[in-house]
Design a protein around this nucleic acid. Structure first.
Lengths: 224, 224
DNA sequence: TCCGGCAAAAATGTTCAACAATTCAACAAT
DNA sequence: ATTGTTGAATTGTTGAACATTTTTGCCGGA
């Protein structure tokens, strides 16, 4: 396919032709995020191999990638299943979020990184006006991702993105309540305002309250 | 408490035979931690396959596992190499440590979890008296692992154990200075005392100071 | 000598086919 | 209803093969 002419002196821009395994993982990740693959669903190697037109070994490598992100769980000799979060897991995820997000907010960020937070807030407002509940959830994820990005840490960003991916596992179970998200929007705006004013401690305090309410909401929806 | 799964009533005691790929990953992890495989070293699939008596595909699965832990890095079509941390990475690791450890310490812990912290402090003292610098480093890792374990979060524990594994990558480069560790020992003791007294904020403050000094030390050793 | 390019060699990425080991489902027997 | 047994389905692992990419070593020319 990519028949690069050897004689051309063009700099080889390594346009990440994603390895097949990586692309399979992305495809599965997408289907999980969209809810096409529900928690608890079993992923059979042979079926996927056939469906996606790749070998079993490649599917296997993709599984390893997803397992490391906790999106699927591997049961030895039984197969891999889309992760299904118990109440305990939900609490655990919020423990991680508190650690990471609060730390990032307390540390503050550059003007650009705070601008990114503001952009996510506005994105949420637009989605709310358009009645796009899907977009609202997405904007909310962007907001919290932007908060962590303020720390400028690659590792923290990776951890946060995995946490957000995990949260999508129970997002489509938690039917979106418009009024609830309205509150979140206001919260996000207040947190952002505090950051813009340079009052990181106030922002952290507000974020902590938000996370507490959010956890409460999720566990309530999940245990009912 | 037990992971509720419809069909699994009892945990199988299959501890005897871990999957081959998992064992290969453990073996490599060990060799990296011990310094037998130095940062930057290339891991050739075929050589390892032959040496360990497993197939290339199995080695590949082990690589995927280690890559997810950042112990090795994969360069497409070039191979996998033992991770080599730049100054930037060192800072990044400490950002994560601050987020996680401080959060755990601020949240405090149960009596047992604090006892585990105390045990790690004593372990360090014994190693110091015995002049066992290897044991000193190990005890220090146990201490910080115990701090995070106070939060009782499985995910936080996993993240911390990976961070500690990453730190071993530059530990054997940072030649151990006995006097330096003596200071650390005293710090750990003070942090533990604060926890035992229930003064989590004081413990967090001391931990923060420790982390700042530790980061400074590591970067100094690494850039020289 | 040094340099660019080119062909051969080596290593990785991926596929395919096979087999052992384990789990699962159906069914028979007590 | 519980327990064994059998056979099918699935996973774990291997080995070999091939395409693609990178690396190496060589060669001729400035």
């Amino acid at each position: 396919m990519a028949t690069v002419n050897p004689s051309s002196g063009v700099a080889r821009l390594r346009v990440a032709v994603p390895a097949v395994a990586t692309r399979v993982a992305s495809e599965l990740r997408l289907q999980i995020a969209e809810g096409a693959l529900l928690p608890g669903a079993k992923l059979k190697e042979e079926a996927l191999s056939e469906e996606l037109g790749v070998s079993r070994n490649t599917v296997r490598e993709a599984f390893a990638e997803l397992a490391s992100e906790r999106l699927v769980v591997r049961q030895p000799n039984r197969g891999v299943f889309v992760a299904s979060l118990e109440a305990n897991d939900i609490h655990d995820v919020y423990v991680v979020r508190r650690a990471i997000e609060i730390s990032a907010v307390r540390g503050g960020g550059s003007a650009e990184s705070i601008a990114a937070v503001r952009a996510a807030v506005e994105e949420g407002k637009r989605a709310a006006e358009a009645g796009d509940s899907e977009g609202l959830g997405s904007a909310n994820a962007h907001f919290h991702g932007a908060l962590v990005a303020m720390a400028g840490s690659e590792r923290l960003n990776v951890i946060m993105s995995q946490v957000l991916a995990e949260m999508r596992l129970f997002f489509h179970k938690a039917s979106i309540d418009g009024g609830f998200y309205q509150d979140y929007l206001a919260d996000n705006d207040q947190i952002c305002k505090a950051l813009e004013a340079g009052d990181n401690d106030l922002a952290a305090e507000r974020l902590l309250a938000y996370l507490a309410r959010s956890e409460e909401h999720q566990t309530a929806v999940h245990t009912s």
